[in-house]
Design a protein around this nucleic acid. Sequence first.
DNA 1: ATCTATTTTAC
RNA 2: UUUGUAAAAUAGAU
Length: 304
Amino acid sequence: MKEQDGININLIDKVIANNNLWRAYKKVKANNGAPGIDGITVVQLKSHMKKYFEPLKKKLKDGTYQPQPVKRVAIPKPDGSKRYLGIPSVLDRVVQQAILQVIEPIIDPHFSEHSFGFRKGRNAHQAIILAEKYYEEGYRVVVDCDLKSYFDTIHHQRLRAYLEEFISDKIVLKLIWKFLRSGILDRDIYIETKEGAPQGGPLSPILANVYLNKLDRELEKREHRFIRYADDFVIYVKSKRAGERVMESVSKFIEQDLQLVINQNKSKVCGATTSTFLGFNIQNLMGKLDADQVSRPNNDSKTS
DNA sequence: ATCTATTTTAC
RNA sequence: UUUGUAAAAUAGAU
């Protein structure tokens, strides 16, 4: 707790440690992703890194490292709309990964027990178990709140303030800031990034969680039964009326205090049985459990 | 404990 | 073509 702050000041040395940088390289290489705007591929990455290894470490150490703009790529979403990815250069992905490897063990323990997305040792299944628990406790109305293009609307300065609560190393904070501000290259036109985290950077998921940790803490303060998986979150209440009231006050908090946008069309208050969360419907889940509990001798035509 | 490969799910 | 993180399963290397 207190000792962490002391270690925290020297985080950049942990970031640029040879074994950390090469471990980060391996992670990026293993993902086999596409190149960024410089066209350097994961195949070329190792020799590229070796060639500029010492200058790279020096620039990271003094905070003068300048990330390249991310490459904008549009991919279709299941609902037919587009999702814009921001692909950092392979080297920038290594640097982000190296920072992630150092800050994640420091930050993650401070996250909420109700947060399940993008976290070590946590998965969607555990989130569903909790949803089931809420349901069985009699919280059977779901407030389903949808954030409009969450990643793209993260407020930089607020995010930095939230990060400063966990990280005191000024150089690491500066590097993260530079990644947020490095801009987007859409074909040949450069777009400044004054808000949002690129969907594609290794740091983006943890930054998304740092930001919405503030929402978790507020919901805990209000003693709500909730589950959050990245930007997807649900609050379990006992009545439709309570749901409407919670929806209104939580929406107000999100828009005023977090400066995010609620997607009014997709947000809704409904019965737990008609809600789908993390690709799961509670009724189907209960149905499955019933089917497992009640033994059915002759129903299966399959092998046994 | 580290790492490679393949597949699936979630956002 | 299409990025990222996490989880799970399987095969394997040290």
